Every structure is written in C-alpha cells, then in structure tokens.
Amino acid sequence: MLRSQFEEELLNLHNQFYEMGMMVSNVVHKSVRAYINHDKKIANEVIEYDVQINDMEVKLEKKSFEMIALQQPVTTDLRMIITVMKASSDLERMADHAVSIAKSTIRLKGETRIPEIEKEISDMSDYVKKMVDNVLIAYVKTDQKDARMIAKMDTRVNEYFDSIYSHSIKAMQANPETVVSGTDYLHVATYLERIGDYVTNICEWIVYLATGKITELNSNHDE
C-alpha cells in the first residue's frame, strides 16, 4: 500500500474520531437536557444514539489494528493510531454515562424534585460539555498546552460535584419526600464527574501524541 493511501487512511481515522467525539458531546448535552426537562423522548434518543457510538468505537478499533498490522507504522503515525484507539474508548465510556443519565430521566417520573439542585446539575453539565468540546479541538490541533489547561478544568467539576452532593444530602434530611430524587441527583452528578475524568484521560493522550510521553495530569482520576 502506498504511503499516500496510508496517510489518507490516517486522516480518515482522525476524522471519524472527531465525528464520534461530536456525537458524544451531543448525547452528554441531550441527556442532561432530558433529565432537567423531564423529556422522555430526548432521553430515548440518547439511548438509541449509544448503539451508533458503540459501533463507531468498534470500527475505529478494528481499523486501527488493521493499520498497525499491515503498515507497521512507527513514531508519530503509531502514536496517532494508539491515541485514537485509547481516546475513543474514553469517548465510548462518556456516552455510557450519558445513557445512565437518560435512564434516570425515565426513572424519576412523578417524584418530588428540587429546582435549585437541578440548576446546579445543569450548570455542571454545561461546564462538562465545554470540556468535551475543547478537548476535541485540542485533539485536532494536537495542542498539548490546551490539553493541560483542559485537564485543570476538572477541579471545577469536582467542586460542582461536592456542592451538589452536600445540597442533596441536606435536602433529603430536611424532607424525606426528596429522598428518591436526591439520591438520583447524586448519581447524575457522579456520572458527570466521571465524564470529566474521561476528558482528562483524553488530555493525557493528546500530551502523549504531542510528546511521546505518558503523563498523569490529574493524580486523582479514574482510569
């Protein structure tokens, strides 16, 4: 296979990853909108999208393995393929958490809700979506400086989480009728916090792509 054909395949891989990322950003946003607006229709759309996102990950992974096996790429090319493989699995996990949020929408039907906490969840999700969108741009530009900055944004996500956590606990103690929704807010905040962690993982892959070094950016996040 000619070098130019390999480069074209590499570009396709790159573009498919970006497309998958945009789709994930969309489902993260939609899942929280559905949750806050009690919108079952949008919640179901998110759940349906997930199948497409999983397919995209499988396709990307298969193509990546193929390119490694057939081309035996070295240095930067190999790094790019590895980055797509690793980062697309992070994207896929983000989508799974969005699906969990969408499923909560369907679960919370008719429960006593707490508007102030839902406002916080909405703000937290806007912030997380901004991180997702920014990380995709940093990936396209292979910008490790941006990647490091985006990873630092995760501190704010953890602050949102702590705030929602303490407000939910207080609400449940004050009014037993809010126990179901309060518990659910904790779950949703946890899912959003995890999505922030996966964004940080992708930041690490961007740094790897730029430098060839595996770097831990935030010491406290999940793999």
Results as ranks from 00 to 15, higher is better:
16 Q>A: 12
204 E>C: 06
207 V>S: 02
69 A>V: 14
169 I>V: 13
7 E>F: 09
99 V>A: 02
65 F>P: 00
132 V>K: 04
94 M>G: 04
4 S>P: 05
141 K>T: 13
8 E>Y: 09
190 T>H: 08
150 I>Y: 01
151 A>H: 01
45 E>F: 02
21 G>E: 03
54 N>V: 14
108 L>T: 04
62 K>F: 05
114 I>G: 04
178 T>M: 10
144 Q>Y: 11
219 S>P: 12
130 K>Y: 07
52 Q>F: 13
152 K>L: 15
170 K>E: 14
204 E>D: 03
83 T>Y: 05
5 Q>Y: 12
73 P>R: 05
24 V>C: 10
213 K>D: 12
93 R>F: 03
126 D>T: 09
128 V>W: 01
37 N>A: 06
10 L>S: 07
2 L>K: 14
104 S>E: 11
108 L>W: 04
16 Q>I: 12
37 N>E: 06
178 T>E: 06
92 E>F: 04
218 N>H: 11
198 Y>P: 11
116 E>H: 09
49 Y>W: 12
22 M>H: 07
199 V>I: 06
222 D>F: 15
100 S>G: 06
66 E>T: 13
194 R>D: 12
70 L>N: 14
33 R>E: 11
28 V>A: 13
100 S>W: 01
148 R>E: 13
130 K>F: 06
130 K>P: 01
105 T>M: 02
15 N>C: 11
160 Y>Q: 04
68 I>C: 03
161 F>P: 01
195 I>F: 00
183 T>V: 09
45 E>L: 05
50 D>H: 07
140 V>S: 07
199 V>F: 00
46 V>R: 00
88 S>V: 08
183 T>K: 14
21 G>D: 01
133 D>M: 12
133 D>H: 08
54 N>A: 08
171 A>N: 15
138 A>K: 03
101 I>D: 01
217 L>R: 11
77 D>H: 10
96 D>N: 05
9 E>R: 15
104 S>L: 09
128 V>L: 02
30 K>S: 15
100 S>M: 08
78 L>R: 06
163 S>C: 10
72 Q>C: 03
59 K>G: 12
22 M>A: 12
80 M>L: 15
217 L>G: 04
